[in-house]
Design a protein around this nucleic acid. Structure first.
Length: 203
DNA sequence: CGTTCGATGCACT
DNA sequence: GTGCATCGAACGT
């Protein structure tokens, strides 16, 4: 079942929690790829210094202010497309960055796309559990680009689905890779999952 | 184990 | 001109 717009029109932290275990599906001319979301980060409102809406509305961050259930895709560091799910009510800037997936369908296509990534210098082989590990890697593997910006996640080529999986146990910690707003524990992930980015929490 | 750095493009000031 | 919600290799300790 494809998650309806109402799923996203809720408090962003609730949505982030509930996205863990759901499945991101992309249908392209090259084939279908999908993966279970195992890591996601919330960016909430103009008061969140790490949210793109922190400095107010601009051309780039306009999708954040759009209706819940659409995709916000932007280019970072000149080579990485980042995909977010827009949340909260229309006009309320908030979104969830999808940071990692456990690959499910279309692994050969993912391998092919990853091998073409400009930041993979010589190394042709990517282990399966690393295909969608990290926000830049997963968009590359899934074939998600700026062309998907503003697309609805509730129908069409790019959707998020409930495929009946039991929601994994979710842990919260600090968001990764940002210079401000690291005090907020708004990164949800499946503890110990091999496809989660960053350094594993050592025990 | 840790830190540094190049690749690469565009919105923003 | 500056600074990224990154990736992965190349170093240093």
């Amino acid at each position: 079942m494809i998650l309806p717009a109402g799923f996203y029109e809720r408090p962003t932290l609730d949505v982030a929690h509930d996205l863990i275990g759901k499945v991101l599906v992309h249908r392209s001319a090259d084939g279908v790829t999908s993966g279970m979301i195992v890591e996601a980060e919330a960016y909430i409102g103009e008061d969140d210094p790490a949210c793109h809406a922190a400095a107010g509305r601009t051309v780039r961050n306009a999708p954040l202010y759009g209706p819940p259930g659409i995709a916000y895709v932007y280019l970072n560091y000149g080579l990485h497309d980042m995909v977010n799910a827009v949340t909260e009510a229309d006009g309320d800037p908030a979104a969830i960055l999808i940071r990692a997936l456990e690959p499910l369908d279309g692994l050969p296509l993912m391998r092919k796309r990853r091998a073409l990534a400009p930041w993979r210098k010589g190394k042709p082989v990517v282990p399966d559990h690393e295909l969608c590990r990290g926000p830049g890697n997963l968009t590359r593997a899934m074939g998600i680009t700026l062309a998907d910006n503003l697309r609805p996640l509730t129908a069409g080529a790019l959707t998020i689905q409930d495929q009946g999986r039991v929601t994994p146990f979710v842990v919260w910690d600090s968001r990764i890779g940002i210079r401000v707003g690291t005090d907020r524990q708004w990164r949800a992930s499946v503890a110990g999952h091999r496809s989660v980015s960053g350094r594993p929490v050592r025990g």
